[in-house]
Design a protein around this nucleic acid. Structure first.
Lengths: 365, 365
DNA sequence: ATTAGCACTCAGAGAGCGAGAGTGCCAGTG
DNA sequence: CACTGGCACTCTCGCTCTCTGAGTGCTAAT
């Protein structure tokens, strides 16, 4: 039972209208809204067939039609047009991307805000790293009882921590400590940091006061944090503006589901393809709480062993085309910025803020 | 026109009942619920007077009474009992505080989650630093075209950034750079990082490639970030469970107000007293969006020039007593942990996770 | 001073009704 | 034969109306 071209056109019209209005769509509306030159009666017949085929649904006998998940699926797969972004939108995205002189987590939250304010749906950003290891340790002596531990992860991330001690140590000790860690604690995963290894290190640098343990604890924490991944929800309040979430219970249910980062981290269940958009429509979602919502997901590369995901959650009646276009644009932009070994910033920045290189040279003469 | 003891008792009973049920309270209910041995008629008379005095309000003629903001104010100031936390609650708070081997911003978000899940209201955590400066720079050579910049702020915070260059530099250059920054760029505020100063530094270390600018840009960014303050909203979805926010429009309005960190940063308008709880009831809030919500705020010290605030937002019918007790406990705990020069962690941690010191020593023998 | 009793008020729930939108089907038309 | 106009039918939504019950304020009795 194939679907005729005309049926496709009608289905598209119905879905577009429903996305726009959130109200069941009647045959009359479709007939009037131009596009196809048919009477409402014809459209009615076609719609009846589309209903029989499972692409449309009827809330009750004398109401208009509403797209079924199957209908949305067809729409997403082949019907909808690739929407282009407006100048203004690309402009906004670009400028938001430019101030990226920041840590990854800040960036994620900013990108989430950007996505949610562009789409008017809540957005979710995740970073799901692949098993992290530390490639390098630096210990910076600050005071007799204080030093900074800096570790570099195999991605491009760097983490640090100021460590106070209840006793004093000298610079030499700190240096020895760093040397030992760099030889014996790099390129290993969390579970390879064993008591035995720590013990060995303690002997190697003559540590009797548990210094090794302190640094090792920091390393463990960092590795666990890094491989735990992070999830941020932005623009949650957008949900409440949607007619399908006027029921506070429904809104509450979804919101509290989304507020728990544990749940979010489980989102990217099907992570086959890369780089392109993935759409999960209503019941296609595994999580019960998402069964009548849709999720649009874009992946991006955040360095070698970092997989970023940015997603948007909304009702099944979602502006798939627009959301997909925006996410695609953001994700490719992000990948470009993050994957490249980060162009040297600061030059232009300072110049813009203060004055140009030339002006500056001049003014100091 | 003074308020008699009996009136106070009745007012307290009304408020307690209203906090619990969210429904207008009738004289009968108060009469029955023990405590005072009076007939409903007497209570009616007293309640009528309390209404005349402005402590209670009537939604409509034949409904029960509802506390007015003035009533809540009296309640908060002198009527309510200092609630004690249950064992379970103190337990939860303590254990949450213990895993504090983390950055400040992570900590803030964790504390926010803790507060909101304990109180069942949305929680807000802010860190509003006083003009930050950098006390120390460290530049760590990684590769010919890569180094890590680590700066220490006058609080206890440390920030870092991995810097890639489009050209190579040698270790000597990096060292000179660090030396110059440590002598000329420490203990100054953002606006003192001028083109002149940068120019001077460039000459001082013979930098012709704009290295100074790059590091200076990082310093500027860090300082701006640090003094911008940060605001995190947690547990937003709790709002939707409250009967006063069953109206999605109301919920939406408040939620989107709270989602904007700009707004939150403006919250601590009246910051007179320290260390104790502050309650802003309904119209006492400056922001229009909060006019019929209440905010309970606790301050804590997060080091020398860092002022932390943790707050809870809810309807005017809020469990002031319980919320205040919880926040007070959290805030004092936080101050203790953060103000103290941070006890050495790691020892215990590792031991707990793996085995005890003794066991470990034994097992390696 | 307190209480019991009573008439009064008013929001909210529920029933009943009508309008309007949309459907399905049938007969007519190019 | 595909399409269209027309018509009877269905069902939701919004409206009004009524009724119930909780709660009040007042008065008279204790």
């Amino acid at each position: 039972m194939d679907i005729s071209d005309r049926k496709k056109k009608i289905l598209t019209a119905v879905i577009d209208a429903y996305i726009a209005t959130a109200e069941p769509v009647g045959s009359k509306l479709i007939a009037q809204s131009g596009g196809l030159d048919l009477s409402s009666a014809t459209i009615r017949n076609e719609m009846a067939e589309l209903t029989a085929m499972g692409y449309l649904e009827q809330p009750h006998t004398s109401a208009g039609r509403v797209p079924s998940p199957q209908g949305y699926r067809l729409y997403v797969n082949e019907l909808m047009e690739r929407q282009r972004l407006s100048m203004e939108e690309t402009e906004r995205i670009n400028s938001a991307m430019n101030l990226k002189m920041q840590q990854l987590d800040k960036l994620m939250s900013d990108i989430g805000k950007l996505a949610s304010s562009l789409t008017q749906y809540p957005a979710v950003t995740l970073a799901a790293p692949v098993a992290a290891t530390i490639t390098r340790y630096d210990l910076i002596y600050v005071e007799a009882d204080t030093f900074i531990a800096v570790v570099m992860l195999d991605g491009k991330d760097v983490e640090n921590k100021l460590i106070h001690l209840p006793f004093s140590v000298d610079r030499g000790m700190i240096q020895r400590l760093a040397a030992v860690f760099n030889t014996d604690f790099t390129h290993i995963t969390v579970d390879q940091i064993t008591p035995e290894r720590i013990d060995r290190a303690e002997r190697a640098c003559g540590d009797t006061m548990g210094l090794v343990s302190v640094v090792a604890a920091f390393a463990i924490d960092t590795l666990q944090n890094a491989s735990r991944g992070e999830a941020i929800l932005s623009g949650a309040s957008n949900l409440l503006a949607l007619p399908e979430f006027r029921d506070p219970d429904k809104a509450h249910q979804l919101l509290s589901y989304l507020s728990d980062s544990e749940h979010l981290l489980g989102l990217p269940a099907a992570e086959g393809e890369d780089s392109d958009i993935q759409v999960l429509i209503g019941p296609e979602n595994v999580a019960e709480e998402l069964k009548d919502s849709s999720v649009v997901i874009a992946r991006y590369n955040a360095g070698d062993n970092m997989r970023g995901i940015i997603g948007v959650v909304g009702p099944t009646r979602m502006d798939y085309s627009g959301v997909a276009a925006k996410l695609r644009y953001i994700a490719t932009g992000l990948s470009r910025i993050l994957a490249a070994p980060e162009p040297p910033r600061g030059f232009e920045k300072l110049q813009v803020k203060e004055m140009t290189e030339d002006e500056r040279k001049d003014s100091t003469k």
